[in-house]
Nucleic acid binder design. Sequence first.
RNA 1: AGGCGCGUAGCUCAGCUUGGUUAGAGCGCUACCUUGACACGGUAGAGGUCAGCGGUUCGAGUCCGCUCGCGCCUACCA
Length: 886
Amino acid sequence: MSRPEPLPTRFDPTAFEDRWYSAWEASGAFSPEAGSDRKPFVILIPPPNVTGKLHIGHALQFTLQDLIIRWRRMQGHNALWLPGTDHAGIATQVMVERELAKEGTTRHALGRDKFLERMWAWKHQYKDNISRQARALGASCDWSRERFTLDPMLSRAVRHAFVELYRQGLIYRADRLINWCPRCLTALSDLEVVHKEVDGGMWDFAYPIDGGGEIVVSTTRPETMLGDTAIAVHPEDERYRGVVGRHAIHPLLGRRIPIVADAVLVDAAFGTGAVKVTPAHDANDFATGERHGLERINLLNDDGTINANGGPLAGLDRFAARKAVLQALGEKGLRRGDKPHRHAIGHCQRCDTIVEPYLSRQWFCAMKSMAEQALHAVHSGEVRLVPEFWVATYENWLENILDWCISRQLWWGHRIPAFYCASGHTSVSEEDLTNCPECGAAVTQDEDVLDTWFSSGLWPVSTMGWPDASPDMAAFYPTSLLITGFDILFFWVARMIMMCKHFTGRSPFAEVHLTGLVRDARGQKMSKTKGNVMDPLDLVHEYGADAVRFTLAALASPGRDLPLDSKRMEGYRAFGTKLWNAARFVGLHLDGTEVSLDALEPARLALPERWLLAELQHAAAAVDRAWGSYRFDEGCREIYRFVWNDFCDWYLEMAKPALLGEGDREKGTGDGARRVEDVRAVARGVLVEALKLLHPVMPFITEEVAAHLGADRGLITASYPRPDGRWADEEARGQVGTFRAVVQGVRSYRHMIGLPANAPLALVIPAAGERMGAALGSLRAEMTRLASLSRLDFGGTVPPSAVRDVAGGLDIAIVLPEGALGEAEIARLKFEMTQIEDELARSRARLADQAFVSRAPADIVTATRERVDELARKAAVLGETLRSTS
RNA sequence: AGGCGCGUAGCUCAGCUUGGUUAGAGCGCUACCUUGACACGGUAGAGGUCAGCGGUUCGAGUCCGCUCGCGCCUACCA
């Protein structure tokens, strides 16, 4: 190793981020071989929609995925992170239609082919954006395997799946009530309908009964009465005993409608106990209609206006029709009251229009059997959800699942591979057909496309080349881990498990980590209207990608939302600066002859070096545990603590006497003597290990710094630190712990008695015991420096003017300057005394309790006794000081 | 209507699975320090009846029950 280039004085992330990303990508480190004999570790990206740029939630997920994949790669796994994007059918189509609207045109005016050209142009633009942003964040995904849901390979998988499910009878076409968006002009699945509480009304009106009398019903949607084909009452409701079987007269349209008894639909205790039945516009009424053989009258055109079945109201918009119906009923004297009513109404997830239950012929996918498989996968442990509390939610949804409406009246997506001929034959085929296989007549393909989530559900297999037995499918399926937001647990995660398990017999991943939502500093949801949106690229430019990543990872406590505060990001940028400067300091003292840690013999090293190496093992073990259990917050905290507290605050400060040539012990050659070349080797070696620990979180700065410290190869493919028992040293940890306590005791005392931080004091440690005395004796120069001592004596006489204290279990005596104790200082000491006495009283009371002493474990009792002992000594010496000054 | 999560320092959060010395972190605050890596720094502090009530236990922030407050998800109550 030659003497490394010194680091620039100023830490500037923009100086090296792009350079390192290009180097990594060019090295091929992101692209695993399918034929490798190393253990695979695979993460599939939740493909971002090509609707726009990435938001902070993507940055979170990219960070966590990259963290894990880099960690596994460094552990020696054949690590694959497969990237890609989703065509996001309706979402993207809505965006492009908005663009067209601004140009004063529509997709229909453009025609299907021209419109799809526009869609592809949009897709290319935004896909490029997304890749750039992912790179800026440092995402180490395998771009050579980048996929898009409409790629030919993936489209073939989608088509194959559709045809298979159709042949298995699990996909079918039917006339059903579906959710219809009158703005998007398409069917929606239940999940794409967002229920929102809205202030509406509840209106009562009377139906005249044929032959006399009336029956009063209530409704929140008066316009639907135009499609009423029955009135239902409860069979056991005495009030309506006489009217069941008779007919009411529709007051606006004149037709006779039956009064039926139905125990399922009607709750006699609710409202008037009589319900109007509109089978074509309400799911409950639809079922009621099936039970009673009622006519289904569809009232609406696809754009939400009333059709010819609405008689005089035809052509009115549904909400205008509501007013018109109410007015007409009023004019006929049939209104029987109204009141405000707050209730949940379904809105289109993409355009927020109120959706209508609408009778329509659509394609459906049967869910029951696949849902059972998906439930089993989680119950058997084949798939593990993290955090586990999501299991209850997952179960609840799958246990109550209904068939899935998969056809969409859109143009952007996978066109349904069904072909119809004039004779009414339907043929479903993986290859395009021109003639009907049954009668030979010309066929036309179904105009509709599939729900975008149908292809998303196949993502784990379609990206690998399924249904072919491809090398990637063999090497990388099933995948290891999925990291995604809890908001798409049903949309995507559950459907992937259902579909992939159905087709391959195996769950698509072993673990699913569900992240929380990124919010602003005050915990508010980010939204464009609130103006509190944070753009990941802006943040990268301002703080550097590493600080953004560290912040997101450190905030990612399991199952919780992340309040993203720029203050926090400043703090972690400062962490980068700290690391940079520490490395700069270490680098300045290297001469290029430093040996590796492996070449060092633990027993030959001095105490600080043995201590630091022992702490490194603890940190490595803690970090390993943290990543392994997806405790990103804990792992980050541990590395931060090790680098800043152990390494910078204590080790580097303890290293200074040796590095700067202070003291005289480094000339010694005996056991425990501190040799400056060991200090250099350990400082450098441990720092490089810390950089490796941190690399998955902060890849750029760690790589840059390691290069300057003369690391033999890039961290991207370095071995991740594992705890090494060779360096375990509890004695060193205990001894340095005492050293730290003494140093802190002196510093603390200095402040308590009002002296400036740099005021020199003399310290006497009368009796430390043999081993501890030797240990502390070997750190004379270090203690003198860190505690700012003018003099340090072990044993010997304690000057009468000294005050005594207890630190780390040791008696110490601090020689004070004349008149150091003024009023304020004495008050401070008295406050200290009350704190000690309070705790002493509590602990003594506990020991006095016979039940505690007899029942608590021995080690707890012993520890309490020792604590009481130390506190009593502290109280005694402090009391003496206070008495002598009064 | 069901289900889930949360309530710990001024703020944002760890800790609760497996109860045990003095309940932690970052930011903010106070005092001191321009020490030859770093003022995006160093040192020392202040600040908490762990939402409330009850129970189990020698011992509860941690386990159990109830109450209050906040958030989210699912749902076909006209």
